[in-house]
Computed example of a mutant assay.
Amino acid sequence: MSDRTLRVAHVTEAPLGGVLTYLQELIPLQLEDARIASIEVLAPEVNVKALSSIESDRIKLRSFAHSRGSLLGLLRLALATIRVVRQSRPDILHIHSTVAGALVRCCLLVVPGRPKIIYCPHSWAFAREGSRLKNGAIAAIERLLVRVTDRIICVSNCEKTDAIAWGIPSPKCVVIENGIKSLTPPTTIDGYGSSAYRRRKKILFVGRFDRQKGFDVFAEIMKELQDSEGIAIGDFIVNRAETIEIPSNVTTLGWRSREEVEEIYSTADLLLMPSRWEGLPLTALEAMRAGVPIFASRAGGLKDVVVDGVTGRLFDLGSVKSIADLIRATDEETLREFGKSGRAHFLERYRADLMSKKIMDLYLEMLP
């Protein structure tokens, strides 16, 4: 393309969570790039406070009132997106998450002069739990919408493999793994998160207390590990009515700021991630950055992030006792080595600047 600068618009329907964190990591780096003239962000109102901390005269925030499952909220998103396209005429429309991806691309079928469209599902909906019929229907919609999609960003190799398996054309997909900014861990004793080892392992859970993240499995594992201490950061968002008995050796802290979570990582012996499906969770990258070992299920991008026996351990969901035994059998020296290796793996592969550069290269590739 020529030396002209780019106008970029990011659109998401996802409230809080991983997509918001992704945008908080990506957008400041994009604003440092002189080749980007302006960035617009269209997101639910609940995300505005976090995004408002990004200071630049080249960013414009637009919001809409929305809650998950609200048809009126989806209509507001559709109309707001059309306004962005018509008024601001972005060169790149970067869409995040399944709901926004489907809705916005459908709308643009009838909008003339559409921009180049880059879609990032942040975990395919058809690769989650559900009936074969339901997942097949979702995949069929995704295949149709590929026709108005210039590129699909898969956040892990596993996500691209799933896409191809369900009939998404491989040439449309590009793997750009998630990244977060590099920070010096709060404590750097031997490169391991804990400042001192303890007889009781401190086991951390970070995320929504829902079925996807396997909070129920975490609770059952902690019942087995009465000689360990559990810390759970997060809360119920989906299925608030679901009853999960939280063991007496688990302390729940609710949602905390990213800065607070970084401090808590420095006290943890390991992060436990018994997820049922994932894209490439930023929580895992935050743990590796802090030098904290990860014990995770073989779900989605976790298979890419965690190098089994090097940066942590991978396990199959099924036997809670076998997972607990795996944790119990891992000694302090091994955890220390996992933490060192995880920190090195993060610096080599999962930095935000690497992610941002690859996305910018993709933008440029899309334009004449």
Score class of each variant (00 low, 15 high):
residue 182 S to H: 05
residue 227 D to Y: 07
residue 206 V to L: 13
residue 244 I to N: 03
residue 368 P to T: 04
residue 264 I to T: 05
residue 70 S to T: 02
residue 304 D to P: 08
residue 324 A to C: 10
residue 341 S to G: 00
residue 342 G to V: 07
residue 358 K to T: 05
residue 344 A to W: 00
residue 112 P to I: 01
residue 151 R to Q: 08
residue 310 V to W: 00
residue 163 A to F: 13
residue 320 V to P: 00
residue 155 V to Q: 07
residue 99 V to H: 10
residue 296 A to N: 15
residue 47 N to W: 10
residue 94 H to D: 02
residue 318 G to I: 06
residue 246 I to L: 09
residue 269 D to W: 04
residue 323 I to Y: 04
residue 279 G to N: 09
residue 92 I to N: 02
residue 26 L to F: 01
residue 97 S to H: 12
residue 77 L to T: 08
residue 117 I to L: 12
residue 24 Q to H: 04
residue 170 S to M: 07
residue 139 A to Q: 11
residue 22 Y to N: 02
residue 54 I to R: 01
residue 269 D to L: 03
residue 181 K to G: 06
residue 246 I to F: 03
residue 149 T to S: 07
residue 29 L to M: 07
residue 225 L to M: 14
residue 135 N to T: 11
residue 261 V to P: 04
residue 248 S to G: 06
residue 350 Y to L: 02
residue 240 R to F: 05
residue 326 L to G: 14
residue 30 Q to D: 06
residue 308 D to I: 15
residue 184 T to E: 10
residue 62 R to P: 00
residue 183 L to K: 09
residue 111 V to Q: 06
residue 137 A to H: 04
residue 274 P to E: 09
residue 184 T to H: 03
residue 316 D to G: 11
residue 210 D to M: 05
residue 135 N to Y: 10
residue 216 D to Y: 07
residue 322 S to N: 14
residue 75 L to Q: 10
residue 161 T to P: 00
residue 276 R to E: 08
residue 199 R to S: 05
residue 201 K to G: 02
residue 201 K to C: 02
residue 152 I to T: 09
residue 227 D to R: 14
residue 81 T to M: 02
residue 247 P to G: 08
residue 82 I to H: 06
residue 108 L to K: 10
residue 148 V to G: 13
residue 266 S to H: 03
residue 361 D to Q: 13
residue 169 P to E: 07
residue 355 M to H: 08
residue 312 G to F: 14
residue 131 S to P: 10
residue 331 D to I: 09
residue 42 L to R: 07
residue 222 M to E: 02
residue 91 D to W: 05
residue 132 R to P: 02
residue 242 E to R: 15
residue 142 E to I: 14
residue 195 S to N: 07
residue 62 R to W: 01
residue 116 K to C: 04
residue 168 I to G: 07
residue 187 T to G: 11
residue 80 A to T: 01
residue 32 E to W: 03
residue 295 F to A: 04
residue 338 F to M: 05
residue 192 Y to K: 04
residue 118 I to C: 04
residue 280 L to A: 15
residue 11 V to K: 03
residue 166 W to Y: 15
residue 9 A to H: 02
residue 358 K to H: 13
residue 318 G to P: 06
residue 104 V to E: 08
residue 1 M to W: 10
residue 244 I to K: 05
residue 277 W to Y: 15
residue 363 Y to W: 11
residue 42 L to I: 03
residue 321 K to C: 06
residue 145 L to I: 14
residue 264 I to V: 12
residue 301 G to S: 11
residue 300 G to A: 08
residue 9 A to Q: 02
residue 22 Y to T: 10
residue 82 I to V: 14
residue 364 L to F: 11
residue 318 G to K: 03
residue 118 I to S: 06
residue 132 R to D: 05
residue 271 L to N: 12
residue 34 A to T: 06
residue 280 L to W: 05
residue 272 L to D: 13
residue 286 E to K: 04
residue 317 L to H: 09
residue 277 W to M: 11
